[in-house]
Structure formats: structure tokens, C-alpha cells
Deep mutational scan, measured.
Amino acid sequence: LRLEVKLGQGCFGEVWMGTWNGTTRVAIKTLKPGTMSPEAFLQEAQVMKKLRHEKLVQLYAVVSEEPIYIVTEYMSKGSLLDFLKGETGKYLRLPQLVDMAAQIASGMAYVERMNYVHRDLRAANILVGENLVCKVADFGLARLIEDNEYTARQGAKFPIKWTAPEAALYGRFTIKSDVWSFGILLTELTTKGRVPYPGMVNREVLDQVERGYRMPCPPECPESLHDLMCQCWRKEPEERPTFEYLQAFL
């Protein structure tokens, strides 16, 4: 395994491009020591290896001592969030954005069929390849993070704006909380990567959403798509659509 080009840095580690087995181009995620327990990670990795779908980033291998390494397929255009905010983002029109959403829903419909939960679905965790191919990455890892700023769910590192209220408040993460996050991801797509709930801080978002506030229809977004977002944001988790439905609708 060779680490060649550093692609990015996040709160919990770095991402590199490299070569595996001398020939395969891969992405390598390294986790800061202390982010998660190697034992817990190894268990999760076994499950992650079983998830194989064309719209999920394929896991190739893991190094399960500290520092933990995760070796996955390489996606040339990086994260969907950076892609939307970058040069190419300007030229993306609604049909392409909807197609990308459908690809993500397709990957998540598979996660749904496998009775698995992602827990951290957002544009930053979707990767883009050639020809606007989108794949879901980092599934299941969020559960293992041991950082206090994260586990408190009120901490600075927790993605509260993407998280369903029952998950943020009571830790009830299910495929239905993933559906909520998918609704937020749809706003990221239609606004080219704007942060959700602009002008609001995490605490406010939690309070307002509890009181029934939902983001309005983004500019140039059809009402039918906003309606779909609002279905994803129904207060009762069981009233939210399935990913199978979302995939078919898109």
C-alpha cells in the first residue's frame, strides 16, 4: 500500500490517493489515533465489506491497528460538496442534479434492503467520479466515533443540521433518520452546496425544527421536489418515504 497524494483533511483524519497491490488506484482514509476503537472498527469493517453495490464506494481493505487505515475505490472528482461548490458546479442544471440524487437514493435503497443504517448521509460523504457518477461513502463509521465533541451530539463536530430530530435528541438512528438526511442533501444539491438552514446555528436549528420549522423551497427548485424534501422531514419517522420510493420518484 503506497500513500501518494494527500487529498484532504477532516476533523478525524486525512484522505490520500495511493496504490494498492502495486496496480490498483485507491483512496486511503487514515484516522487520528483515539477516534475509534480498533476492535469496534474491525467489526464494522466486516459488515462494510459485505455491502456491495454500484452506488456505494467499495471497501477494499482495512488496517485495524492505530493509525487505522481504510482502503476504498478511488473517485476522481472528490466529495459531492466540493464538486457542487467548484468550477463544474456552476454548469450543473436541475436534470443532472436530480440524476445525482437518484443515484444516491439507489445506493441508499440497497442499504435499506440490507437493514443497515448510514448515520451520516450528506454531500460531504458522497463521492463523485467521471460522468457525474455518484456513490455513497463512509457508511456506518459515524457510530464508532468516540470523540466527546461528537458523541455528545451537541458538540461542534456533530452534523446536527443533517440529523433527524429523534436521532439528534435521543440517539434513535434508523434508515428513517437517513431519509431525513437525504432530504437535507437534496437542498445541498439544489443550492450547489450551500450550508443548510443558512444564518442559523446548530442550537437554533434543533429548537426550530422541533417546533415544526422546515426549510423553504430553494430558488429555481420545482415545488414537486420541495414537496419530496418535506416528506423526508415528516416528524414521525414511519411517515417518511422509503429510499425505494425516493429512487422511483426521482
Rank of each mutant, 00 (worst) to 15 (best):
E4C: 14
V5E: 13
K6L: 13
K6S: 13
L7E: 09
L7F: 15
C11N: 06
F12V: 01
W16A: 15
T19Y: 10
T19A: 12
T23Q: 12
T24W: 15
R25W: 12
A27V: 03
L31M: 07
P33D: 15
P33M: 08
T35S: 11
P38H: 14
L42M: 06
E44I: 00
Q46D: 14
V47C: 09
M48A: 03
K55A: 13
Q58D: 15
Q58K: 13
V63T: 05
E66K: 15
I68S: 10
Y69H: 10
I70T: 03
I70Q: 04
I70D: 02
S76I: 13
S76V: 12
K77A: 11
G78T: 05
S79C: 09
L81A: 15
F83D: 05
L84V: 12
K85W: 13
K85C: 11
K85Y: 13
K85V: 12
K85M: 12
G86A: 09
Y91A: 08
L94Q: 06
L94A: 08
L94K: 07
P95L: 07
A101Q: 06
A105V: 10
S106W: 10
G107K: 00
R113H: 14
N115F: 11
N115M: 11
V117A: 04
L127P: 01
L127Q: 00
L127S: 02
V128I: 07
V128D: 02
G129V: 05
V133Q: 13
C134E: 00
V136N: 00
V136C: 04
V136Y: 02
A137V: 02
F139P: 02
G140E: 01
R143A: 01
E146R: 09
E146Y: 05
T151F: 13
Q154I: 13
G155R: 04
K157T: 07
F158R: 01
F158N: 03
F158W: 04
T163K: 01
A164Q: 01
L169R: 04
Y170Q: 09
G171L: 14
G171M: 12
R172I: 10
R172Q: 06
F173K: 02
F173R: 00
T174G: 10
I175M: 14
K176Y: 14
F182E: 01
F182W: 08
I184H: 03
L185W: 14
L185P: 01
L186E: 03
L186Q: 04
L186D: 00
L189S: 08
T191H: 14
P196I: 06
P198Y: 13
M200D: 04
V201C: 13
V201Q: 10
V209K: 01
R211E: 08
G212I: 02
Y213D: 04
R214K: 11
M215H: 04
M215C: 07
M215W: 02
P216T: 09
P219C: 14
C221S: 07
E223T: 12
H226Q: 10
H226C: 09
C230S: 10
Q231R: 10
Q231W: 14
Q231L: 11
C232D: 05
C232E: 04
R234D: 14
R234L: 11
E236C: 13
E238H: 12
R240N: 00
P241G: 10
T242C: 10
T242S: 12
F243P: 15
Y245G: 13
L246Q: 07
F249Y: 11
F249Q: 04
